[in-house]
Amino acid sequence: MITLFGKNRYHWQPELSWFISYWSIAITPIFLSLALVYEHTRIPRNIFILFTLFVVLVGLGFHRYFVIEGAYLRIVSLNLFRPYRVAIADIEKIQVTKSTLTLIFKNQKKRCFSMRKWPKKYFLDDLALQEDFQGEVELLDNFISLDYFELYKNDKKALNQ
């Protein structure tokens, strides 16, 4: 979670299969450029192109986050020109496991996101404090007494309060 210009960003990654595929493709150019450096005595121009491609793919890979803007939840992903906005009142249920967060909307659309535990906790706390949120949060972890989900039993407070 990052606070930028007074708004909290809660970073996420796609589900595991897309996560592994994307990051495998993203780090391939750096290994190709290292192989080219190893094979040549001078630095070829292709290395700069591959390194630039690597930097762009890594930048796009980290450009995935949630922002709560009043009555709307903005979901920003790889599509830089069209962030997805959904009304918080349209969220029917949130299913939470140890590594994923699934948003179920009223028109029965589901979206699955992978998040680390603390940004996920702060995101759920901030979302639950929104007056437009009328959905339910369902914890699907089998080991409730052994992990951080016990924190949800305590009082909810937003990060910036």
Score class of each variant (00 low, 15 high):
31 F>R: 04
70 G>W: 05
27 I>M: 05
72 Y>F: 14
159 L>V: 10
13 Q>L: 15
47 I>E: 07
37 V>K: 12
104 I>G: 09
151 L>Y: 03
159 L>R: 07
9 R>T: 01
52 T>H: 06
55 V>P: 05
58 V>K: 09
160 N>Q: 11
45 R>N: 08
129 L>S: 01
64 R>Y: 06
70 G>V: 09
17 S>Y: 13
74 R>D: 07
123 F>V: 01
156 K>R: 10
42 R>W: 02
12 W>I: 01
92 E>I: 05
144 I>V: 10
61 G>V: 11
18 W>M: 05
132 D>R: 07
160 N>W: 11
100 T>G: 06
62 F>Q: 06
57 L>R: 02
133 F>L: 06
136 E>G: 02
116 R>N: 10
46 N>C: 03
61 G>A: 03
2 I>H: 09
75 I>Y: 02
67 V>K: 09
50 L>T: 08
117 K>M: 14
57 L>F: 08
32 L>C: 12
100 T>W: 03
113 F>W: 05
61 G>C: 04
3 T>W: 07
12 W>M: 00
93 K>I: 04
111 R>V: 11
4 L>W: 12
14 P>A: 01
77 S>L: 04
160 N>K: 10
99 S>I: 08
45 R>M: 11
8 N>A: 09
46 N>Y: 13
151 L>G: 14
38 Y>H: 08
78 L>W: 11
47 I>S: 03
35 A>G: 11
